[in-house]
C-alpha cells in the first residue's frame, strides 16, 4: 500500500509556547485516571448484561474500586484549587460563557467536519466546545458528589424517598458525563484538526502557529485577535 503525501517537503520548525502548567496537566490526568474506573465500575450495576460482574465478591470488589477512585476524584479539584487559588479565578474567567461561543457554534460544523479553520472566530485558551466539556465535567462532578456521598453514608439515615432520587440523579449525571467523555476522547485522540491538544496535555506546550490559528484570543489577546479576524474577513470579501 502506498501513501501519497502532499504538501511541501521542507524542514518544519515548530515554535513551542507553554499552554498548561504541570499541575493543570497532573489534575487532568488524575481526573481521567479516576473518571474511567469510576464509570466502568459503576456500569456494572447499570447494564443488565454485566450482571455476572455485579454478583457477590466481584460486585463488592468493584464497589471498593469505585469508592477509592471516588475519594480521589472528589478531592482532586478541591485540593488543586487550595494550592492554586489564582488558577481558580483564571479558570472561572476562562470558562464563563462569552460572545464568541455563539460564533463557535455557527462555525463548528464547517470547522470540525470540513477542517475549515478560517471560518472559526477567535477563541480563548479553551474554545467554546472545550468550555462545554469543562462545564459538564464540573456540574457532573458536583452531582456525583452530592448524590454519591449520601448514598455511601446515608443508608438508613436519610429517608428512602430521597435515596431513590439520588440513585436516579447519579445515573443521569453518569449518562451525560460518559457521552461528553466519548466526544472528548475522539476529539483528543483521533480528530486531525485537534492534533496539538494531546501534545499540550502531555507536554504542556503548543505550537505557536497552532495557537495563533485556533486560540487567537489567547495568543494575541482579545483586542488584537479581533483586529486580525476583521482584517481577514475584509480580505476574503475582496477576493
Amino acid at each position: 500500500m502506498t501513501v501519497q503525501l502532499r504538501g511541501r517537503a521542507e524542514a518544519v520548525t515548530i515554535q513551542w509556547i507553554p499552554k498548561y502548567t504541570f499541575l493543570e496537566r497532573l489534575g487532568h490526568w488524575l481526573h481521567t485516571a479516576t473518571f474511567v474506573p469510576l464509570a466502568l465500575t459503576g456500569m456494572v450495576l447499570y447494564f443488565p448484561f454485566l450482571r455476572p460482574l455485579a454478583q457477590g465478591e466481584a460486585g463488592e470488589f468493584f464497589r471498593l474500586v469505585h469508592r477509592v477512585a471516588a475519594v480521589i476524584f472528589g478531592l482532586l479539584p478541591i485540593v488543586y484549587y487550595i494550592f492554586q487559588p489564582r488558577r481558580l479565578l483564571l479558570h472561572i474567567r476562562e470558562f464563563l460563557p462569552r460572545k464568541e461561543d455563539i460564533g463557535w457554534l455557527k462555525a463548528a460544523p464547517a470547522y470540525y467536519l470540513l477542517g475549515k479553520h478560517e471560518v472559526m472566530p477567535p477563541q480563548g485558551r479553551f474554545n467554546a466546545g472545550e468550555k462545554l466539556n469543562g462545564l459538564v465535567m464540573m456540574v457532573t462532578w458536583a452531582v456525583f458528589g452530592l448524590t454519591g456521598i449520601p448514598m455511601w453514608f446515608g443508608k438508613g439515615v436519610i429517608p428512602p424517598e430521597l435515596f431513590r432520587w439520588l440513585v436516579v440523579f447519579h445515573d443521569l449525571a453518569m449518562i451525560v458525563a460518559v457521552c461528553m467523555f466519548l466526544v472528548h476522547l475522539y476529539l483528543a485522540v483521533a480528530h486531525p484538526l485537534m492534533w496539538a491538544g494531546l501534545v499540550s496535555m502531555r507536554f504542556g506546550v503548543t505550537s505557536a502557529e497552532y495557537a495563533a490559528e485556533h486560540h487567537a484570543k489567547w495568543y494575541y489577546g482579545p483586542k488584537r485577535a479581533m483586529e486580525i479576524w476583521e482584517e481577514k474577513k475584509r480580505e476574503a470579501a475582496h477576493h
Partner: peptide, 22 residues
C-alpha cells in the same frame, strides 16, 4: 454518541487531509 462519533470519524478521515492541516 458512539455511532455519531464513528460516523464523524469516517467522514472527517476522508474530508480533512492531515497534510493540509497546520
Amino acid at each position: 454518541a458512539l455511532a455519531g462519533i464513528l460516523g464523524v470519524f469516517l467522514f472527517v478521515r476522508r474530508k480533512i487531509r492531515m497534510e493540509e492541516v497546520r
